[in-house]
Design a protein around this nucleic acid. Structure first.
Length: 883
DNA sequence: CTCATCACG
DNA sequence: ACGTACGTGATGAGC
């Protein structure tokens, strides 16, 4: 037996929107109406078990009802944008449900539904109509039940003719007459003024129809008679407007409604995108491992071993579409190579590590090393490093889906292949956590499970590549990808594998000195506190300072007293212990993070440390550095700066050469804002902070004292970060009013910068993203948030990201060029480190002169701006000396 | 595992 | 009026 379910899409999504509290996913997309709709839908599908389902939508603004009555639905509130944006989302979701949707130009959803219920009546098909609109009751019949949403949206009241009779004392068709008399404010249907539901029902019980009432006006009395007679026309027109049209041309389309249930995994993809976590659970999905097993059936896994036909394997590799190389563990310098999977036509070849390194793996090794053999994979940078530590060469990256995903959305934190595939609607990749476990349970499962997992990943990569290629092209980032990021990843892997020599004795010596001083501070602190406690514990320290010694509380954290350096500096005058704690903190940081931490990272055999640059983390396009982080080695304070003495060349007599961009971010700002004053300053290579001080304080160069320059420097930082008076006042310890004045003065002097700041925020609002000079993108959904905090943050980000990001683009370009030049010129000098605006090299003495010219030449010429780029070069026997 | 703190650009 | 400066990673404490 067939059963139809016909849903009034517009009506339900409206109800859901107003019934549900606001809800957004992490991308800032509003989802509350879709969520409400979905809960209702899941419930009704469960309860009704329909064989045919349709969601009907209104199409366009003008329907046949507007002919003759242009005010129809006039005066309606404009659909809020938070709701409008959910229509396409709902429509896409319905596709995942495999539920049909109709909309027809010139007709409303209720006309489509009305027509289908007529057909249902004719064919005797049991039908349920779902809507929030009482008008629908006119469609009720023996076959057709009307489900109207109650209060919320997931509960419905079902009406058949008997229940309508009971509730209103009317037959279904009389609902039209009811509306004709009482009108409908929400659709701007007038009816007869002064006639509400009560009066209308009374009249209809007596005269049955609008026509009946109008034919008997002489029976009415007083005011009522006057009103009815005066609004005869309105009543007739209102009835007409309320009448659902049941002759929409829909012949032979009922087959399209047939519904045989939804595909759980494709629905889960959609729910994941929308972040409907509770609904995913409700779906009761099969375990990911089962899904992976099921997908494995669509291609044949071939385990490569000694028996594998070698020539066949070579042919397959030559035609490989994608590869997944599993480097197990976070740090690719210490990872375990589990093996790899290669897709080729109908097959996935899985090669485990033992086979890869055996005679049978030779064709695979040759393929990996062949730069003419294109590899499309996931995180090939990591793979390349891991392979190289196992003595295996890797060349020929053609596409990396991780790197592409990063460019397409650099703010997405979860870039695992599992979630990446899910975002593109590619199911059946288990999460690494599900396969390998996490934390204490982290371990490699049996070979078969690994093979299945690697095969699934290689399969997902194959599917992702063409989708991302077109996404990159569509967003204008293909050049950035192919000409910058992808070549850079190869350069980075080279630098990482090379590493930098760190002299352990230097660090150990420094460590002994620190230890001695720390013990001294510790005894003094205990004495002044009158007790022993753990100075490293903010909790214990807070108790000592604010309870035992009763110092004033400056700031609180979520969990208690704040004891950070900013607070301690304010407390210094109150008690001599504070100064000691500040020193203790400073030295203890050096000891634990930089002496002990770095010592642990030195490879005993080579005396080198190997950082891991991550190219897909920072939202602005910068690199980040891990295991150890070599981008935050101390420099600002002399005690810490001494750590740099331990960073030395790896060959006797060689030198460390450092080259850093001078004021790259402000130069970038001068270029992209086009501000004439700022450009002039850089064209004449002025001291930018002094110049800013001159303009902000209205003085001449020789009147700028060190304090004015310091404040101007803070203003310049503020400008780059997306200025606010609060931030600046906080940084300079001045009043907000004074900070405001500085900012105003700055913008008066640099009008182009103000215009840039205003424009970039507007542009972000319009496009939803900002870009760097090389078209790197960052989406800022929160730029439209009504929450002041979120919105302000997005606005500052809109100002900062093009600046910081373009600076990142420039140094990345320089790195790729530099790598090329070193090769081309057969130089032995090596690029070792990047620290955002600085490159560090090790240089043989006979190349020093060449490099002193070449490095700044390449870096300054990386990109031509309206202002010159300037690079300072320094060298010495260690990193400390490059100042 | 999260928080507070602090190192860098 | 709203309450923050932008971007990272490592460490030790304490739940």
């Amino acid at each position: 037996m067939d059963k139809w379910m016909l849903i009034d899409g517009n009506s339900i999504i409206y109800r859901a929107f107003f019934a549900m509290p606001p809800l957004t996913n992490s991308a800032g997309l509003h989802t509350n109406a879709v969520f409400g709709f979905t809960t209702m839908l899941l419930k009704l599908l469960e309860e009704e078990k329909p064989t045919h389902v349709l969601v009907a939508f209104d199409a366009g603004k003008v329907t046949f009802r507007h002919e003759g009555y242009t005010e129809y639905k006039g005066g309606r509130q404009k659909t809020p944008p938070e709701l409008s944006e959910q229509f396409p989302v709902l429509k896409e979701l319905l596709q995942s449900f495999s539920i049909a949707q109709f909309e027809l130009a010139g007709y409303e959803a209720d006309d489509i539904i009305g027509t289908l219920t007529r057909m249902a009546d004719e064919q005797g098909v049991e039908t349920i109509v779902v809507s929030g609109d009482k008008d629908m009751l006119q469609l009720a019949s023996d076959q057709v039940t009307i489900a109207l949403t109650r209060k919320g949206v997931s509960e419905v009241d079902r009406y058949n003719p008997a229940e309508i009779q009971e509730r209103y004392g009317l037959k279904p068709l009389q609902i039209i007459d009811l509306k004709g008399l009482m009108g409908d404010a929400s659709d701007n249907i007038p009816g007869i003024p002064g006639v509400g539901e009560k009066t209308a029902l009374k009249l209809l019980h007596e005269y049955e129809t609008v026509e009946g009432v109008l034919a008997h006006t002489e029976d009415l009395k007083g005011k009522m008679k006057e009103k009815v007679e005066a609004h005869k026309e309105d009543a007739i027109m209102s009835k007409k407007l309320a009448t659902i049209y049941r002759e929409v041309p829909l012949e032979n389309q009922t087959d399209e409604l047939s519904y045989s249930g939804y595909d759980k995994s494709s629905l889960a993809q959609s729910f994941r995108k929308l972040e409907f976590k509770s609904l995913i659970e409700r779906l009761d999905l099969p375990e990911a491992a089962e899904a992976e097993g099921a997908a494995a059936a669509s291609y044949e896994i071939i385990m490569v071993d000694a028996d594998t036909d070698r020539s066949q394997l070579k042919v397959a590799l030559a035609q490989a579409e994608s590869v997944y190389i599993e480097a197990y563990g976070e740090n690719p310098h210490h990872s375990q190579l589990l093996g790899l999977a290669v897709t080729s036509g109908e097959h996935v070849y899985v090669v485990n590590y033992d086979v890869l390194t055996s005679e049978a793996g030779k064709p695979v090794r040759e393929w990996l090393a062949d730069d003419k053999a294109p590899k499309r994979g996931y995180d090939l940078h990591k793979a390349e490093l891991a392979l190289s530590w196992h003595g295996l060469a890797f060349c020929g990256t053609a596409f990396d889906v991780l790197l592409a995903a990063y460019l397409l959305d650099p703010t997405e934190a979860n870039q695992t292949l599992n979630s990446l595939a899910a975002r593109y609607g590619i199911p059946a990749v288990s999460s690494d956590e599900a396969v390998y476990g996490r934390g204490a349970k982290f371990k490699v499962p049996d070979a078969e499970a690994v093979a299945r997992h690697l095969a699934a990943k290689a399969g997902a990569v194959r599917q992702l590549v063409p989708l991302q290629e077109s996404d990159l092209a569509n967003s204008g980032m293909d050049k950035l990808y192919y000409e910058l990021e992808q070549p850079l990843s190869f350069v980075l892997a080279g630098m990482e594998k090379l590493g930098i020599s760190v002299n352990a004795e230097t660090l150990e010596e420094l460590g002994r000195e620190l230890e001695h001083k720390l013990v001294g501070y510790m005894t003094d602190i205990y004495r002044l506190a009158g007790m022993e406690f753990n100075i490293n514990s903010p909790k214990q320290l807070g108790e000592v300072l604010f309870e035992r010694l009763s110092l004033p509380v400056i700031k609180k954290t979520k969990t208690g007293y704040s004891t950070d350096a900013e607070v301690l500096e304010k407390l210094e005058p109150y008690h001599e212990i504070v100064r000691l704690i500040l020193h203790y903190r400073q030295l203890s940081k050096l000891q634990s993070t930089y002496v002990e931490g770095l010592l642990k990272e030195i490879r005993r055999d080579t005396g080198k440390v190997h950082t891991y640059y991550r190219q897909t983390i920072a939202a602005t396009g910068r690199l980040s550095s891990q295991f150890p982080n070599l981008q935050n080695i101390p420099i600002r304070l002399e005690e810490g700066r001494r750590i740099r003495k331990a960073f030395v060349p790896s060959e006797p007599d060689w030198l460390i050469l450092g080259a850093d961009y001078s004021q790259i971010e402000l130069r970038v700002l001068a270029h992209i804002s086009g501000d004439e004053n700022l450009k002039e300053a850089f064209i004449h290579d002025m001291d930018i902070h002094t110049k800013t001080a001159m303009d902000v304080f209205g003085v001449s160069a020789d009147e700028v004292d060190s304090n004015m320059r310091r404040q101007a420097k803070a203003v310049n930082f503020g400008i780059v970060y997306g200025i606010s008076d609060f931030g600046l006042s906080n940084n300079l310890n001045i009043t907000r009013k004074d900070a405001s004045r500085f900012i105003e003065q700055y913008f008066e002097a640099f009008k182009g910068v103000r215009a840039y700041m205003d424009n970039i925020v507007m542009q972000a609002r319009q496009d939803g993203y900002v870009t760097t000079l090389l078209e790197r993108r960052r989406y800022l959904p929160e730029i439209k948030a009504s929450n002041f905090n979120l919105r302000s943050f997005a606005e500052r980000t809109a100002m900062n990201t093009p600046i910081q990001g373009t600076a990142a683009d420039i140094i990345k370009l320089a790195m790729v060029r530099m790598d090329e030049e070193l090769r081309k010129r057969n130089l032995r000098s090596r690029m070792l480190l990047q620290v955002h605006d600085e490159l560090v090299f090790e240089v043989p003495p006979d190349e020093l002169d060449k490099m002193k010219t070449l490095v700044p030449q390449i870096m300054e010429g990386a990109l031509t701006l309206d202002v010159p780029l300037k690079v300072d070069v320094n060298y010495g026997v260690n990193w400390y000396e490059t100042k």
